[in-house]
Design a protein around this nucleic acid. Structure first.
Lengths: 344, 344
DNA sequence: TAAATTACTGAAAACGTTTTCATTTTATTG
DNA sequence: CAATAAAATGAAAACGTTTTCAGTAATTTA
């Protein structure tokens, strides 16, 4: 087996030779060009199958300047929301004949920058990006944008105006819904654990929180509003800070589920009754929220809708280029929904 | 902005012209060939940076027959174990200058077959695969293997001999450890929910279970051994079947965590005390297992080690080709560990 | 200082497609 | 049945690199 090395890569020329046709005709037949006789086309397809021919993407891409490949940069694929979005995108793109190169930035700006370069180098036909939380400067995408490659941002999108397409969840509404829900279940002193305000996500979710509080004429204790990296440890820290004082909150809106889960664990360990003395809600509908007890109320972001919308807009952009409606449109906003569970 | 369309893709020729050098030299400098003067090299690198040059992967790949890209086919990225493996692989490959094309088969054989074709067509330098549970025939990978492209299977690997490299968890040991643990905590009547035996995973885990039972001279009630798709519903179904009878199990080893979680929920809803009257253990250390209460004992598969090993072997294969040690080696087996929690 | 190495650079072909333009074949029309 | 239009095919260039082979410049050796 090791002696029988045959790099028997059949090319378009092999088909041409076998059928006494020119490579040009083969190429046309394989690409469904209109001007090739039905019979020859069938002959060609049959011979191609027989020889096990497979188009060489490199050659094809080099010549036609199209790779049929879309790049994707995401903080990490293990985050539930992103995993779902990616799966939808991939399945949907596949139907349109596109492939997807998935890259993880590990939520590191430097990595994101490097990946943008690499994907440019790979000449992807389009790029889909969920930014790092640190990303405030977007110049590393300029090269793609300037070359006319559609760039679509989703979830975490640029704050400053940028010549690309945006698809985001309705984070303001999510924050508003969550907070209003806590208020309606009787909470008066609602705390809020949020992320750094450098990201649109937390700006908006927090704004929704403030809006709801204001609307119901409830005072906000600024010592109970946290803007920090949304880790397990930070959430516990915040909890312990809030509950060491005299006055304690009776409601908590966490801007992601990890923090909510950590806070809930803290509560359970420290004899804080949930939902009786403290009601809680998270954000994202991570699978863990339905499993923990008491199960956590949260906000559903509909990752499948986000993914579908991304591909829909993308196909429009790829087909209609800069004349597409998409570029002129305001950011697409995907609705969110309240999921009420036992923690509130 | 829309009028100023410049497809200003700078090529190697632009650098050559700017520096009055030949494209050959530019190429060499950019690839760190030994025989180019230090000074010219620096000039070239500087000019390349200045012009914002980025190698065209298509052209490069076409000519050199190397894409610096590795393909990956996985059932779904949202499975915790796979997400972790992928992340490790990607970060590690990145350090070696390789890119990764991640594809999901959705656990569908037809999809897996198609993806193999597509990745062949993209001329990936190597392929990493975690098979579908239905995959028993591997001929769709033949083309890759025959072309000398290294194919590495991990986790779910071919049962029949196949000319490729395998990296798997020690599923037999996992099953054995889990069952032995239940026995040591006092269980006598241990049930087992497993997957279809078409996959090595469940063959081995079940074999480990049987071995442990036999070794401790415990009888196996074959009505309590399930080989089914490991879904939430199926697990509940199995539980309800087992607990409607006179004789009920006092231990349950589930071959994955989804089933274990479903079983635990069933137990909680039906007043079966865990761990007092029923002890349970799952498989994979899914994040949910540590959050559910009582927390679930499980088997840690060390996805990071799996990922590391894959890349290690892959680099060997890519460097040393068919002379590599890897091809001759027996399957690489990654150790597993028991994680004891409150459910047992 | 001439001869022999060695270090560096260039010319040109090649990779496998796609595409333009020209050409041949087939079908249509008066 | 010409004359013309339309349809089908072919020849050859092009995409942007890499690489072989040859050639020139720099260095060492005798």
């Amino acid at each position: 087996m090791s002696k029988d090395k045959k790099p028997q890569e059949n090319t378009i020329l092999d088909i041409a030779e076998a059928l006494k046709l020119s490579p040009a005709t083969i190429s046309r037949a394989l690409n469904n060009h209109p001007h090739v006789k039905e019979k020859t086309k069938n002959d060609i397809l049959k011979m191609a199958a027989q020889l096990g021919y497979r188009r060489n993407q490199m050659a094809s891409g080099l010549r036609s300047n199209k790779t049929n490949t879309v790049g994707l940069i995401v903080p990490r694929i293990s985050m539930f929301f992103h995993a779902e979005v990616i799966t939808t995108i991939q399945n949907s793109l596949h139907k349109h004949g596109y492939n997807l190169i998935i890259c993880q930035s590990n939520d590191l700006l430097s990595m994101e920058q490097e990946l943008a370069e690499i994907l440019y180098s790979s000449r992807v036909d389009a790029l889909i990006v969920a930014c790092t939380l640190q990303t405030t400067d977007f110049s590393h995408f300029d090269r793609l944008v300037d070359s006319g490659i559609p760039v679509i941002f989703y979830d975490r999108v640029p704050l400053s105006p940028y010549n690309a397409t945006f698809i985001k969840g309705d984070d303001f509404r999510g924050g508003y819904l969550a907070t209003t829900h806590l208020i309606e279940t009787g909470c008066k002193r609602i705390a809020h654990i949020s992320g750094k305000l450098s990201s649109n996500l937390y700006q908006d979710r927090t704004a929704g929180y403030r809006k709801a509080m204001e609307q119901h004429k409830l005072p906000i204790n600024e010592d109970w509003v946290f803007h920090q990296e949304l880790t397990h440890e930070n959430a516990r820290e915040a909890m312990s800070r809030m509950f060491e004082g005299e006055q304690v909150p009776d409601g908590l809106f966490s801007a992601n589920d990890v923090s909510a889960i950590a806070a809930l664990e803290f509560a359970k360990e420290n004899g804080i009754a949930v939902p009786d003395t403290l009601k809680m809600i998270g954000y994202s509908n991570d699978p863990r929220t339905s499993i923990i007890s008491p199960s956590l109320s949260t906000i559903e972001q509909h990752p499948d809708l986000v993914g579908k919308k991304i591909v829909e807009v993308l196909m429009d952009l790829l087909k209609n280029g800069h004349e597409s409606e998409a570029v002129k449109a305001k950011p697409y906003v995907i609705p969110v929904d309240l999921i009420r569970r036992m923690s509130s």
